[in-house]
């Protein structure tokens, strides 16, 4: 069995009537790791949010399909059960709900009624992943993300990724705010997921994450579009030279200048 295919075509997304994404095309297949880079505010999180179904983002044009199924027709929870996962840039805090209770509910949500994960099995697998990610056991009994440090939240997102085993995951700045050790641990977790049945879209600003997780493809997003794609060497060049050369190469003007010229 080979992996799933997430296909994004000509995606236009608006937030509060302002168009942010202006025609994104991207395909992520099981077995592939894609990195998306790009300057601040160019729409990377918007793309992630639109794929997952964030209530504030409105898709005005284009399609998103997962193995041919129309993702845009699905509710947020249906998208998750269909195999999508988004590690969020800013995960919510859920007071009063322990990380382990939440995880068990989430795992069971994907399973049939009557086929819930046995408690002992759940605990065993949770302990294993906590261990693998160097997370203190007591995080499982703490309330989900409440009072977690920035780094702890990111680790917790990867814990959820490992527990829920989606087909396609989008990781939005999973490396931001991580110290070197945490970066290694988080990368280790993500690399462990690598298989023909797992595809991943990694949004990042920094090459350093890609030192640990080698992407198969690197895409550059600017002004709401994927403007350039390449292999790992593209990320290295961006790290060294920034984005100016792409703008020059493609004749992209800054939006303000473009408006003035119009």
């Amino acid at each position: 069995m080979s992996g799933s295919v997430l296909e994004i075509k000509n995606l236009h997304v608006s937030i509060e009537d302002k168009e942010i994404l202006k025609g994104v095309d991207l395909t992520v297949k099981g077995g592939e790791f894609h990195a998306i880079m790009g300057p601040n505010g160019t729409g990377k999180s918007t793309l992630a949010s639109a794929i997952m179904g964030h209530p504030k983002y409105e898709v005005t044009e284009g399609t998103i399909t997962l193995d041919g199924e129309d993702v845009l027709e699905m509710e947020v929870d249906e998208r998750a059960r269909a195999g999508l996962f988004l590690a969020m840039q800013y995960p919510s805090e859920i007071s009063g709900v322990t990380t382990s209770d939440f995880l068990r509910s989430a795992i069971n949500a994907k399973r049939e009624e009557g086929d819930e994960i046995p408690l002992m099995k759940f605990i065993k697998e949770l302990d294993k992943d906590l261990d693998y990610l160097d997370i203190d056991q007591n995080m499982a009994t703490r309330y989900l993300n409440e009072g977690f440090s920035g780094g702890e939240k990111k680790r917790n997102e990867i814990l959820q990724l490992m527990q829920l085993k989606p087909d396609i995951a989008i990781l939005d700045e999973i490396d931001s705010g991580l110290d070197i050790d945490a970066l290694k641990v988080v990368s280790k977790g993500i690399n462990k997921m690598r298989s023909d049945n797992f595809g991943c879209l990694i949004i990042t600003h920094y090459q350093r994450l890609l030192n640990y997780i080698t992407p198969d493809f690197v895409h550059v997003m600017m002004q709401g579009r994927v403007v350039k794609s390449g292999g790992p060497e593209l990320a290295k060049r961006l790290e060294a030279e920034g984005y100016e050369w792409i703008k020059e190469e493609l004749g992209i003007e800054d939006e303000e200048t473009a408006e003035q010229n119009a």
């Binding site: 997952m52 179904g53 964030h54 209530p55 509710e75 947020v76 929870d77 998208r79 998750a80 059960r81 996962f85 988004l86 969020m88 995960p91 919510s92 805090e93 859920i94 007071s95 009063g96 709900v97 209770d101 939440f102 509910s105 989430a106 949500a109 994907k110 309330y143 959820q160 829920l164």
Partner: peptide, 26 residues
């Protein structure tokens, strides 16, 4: 946003709301 976060992990709306409420009263 809490609902979105919980549902993005596969929880149905009702279940997500149930968790939030129990958490609120906990």
């Amino acid at each position: 946003l809490q609902m979105y976060y919980l549902m993005s992990r596969g929880l149905e709306q009702e279940e997500a709301e149930r968790l939030v409420i129990h958490g609120f009263l906990a």
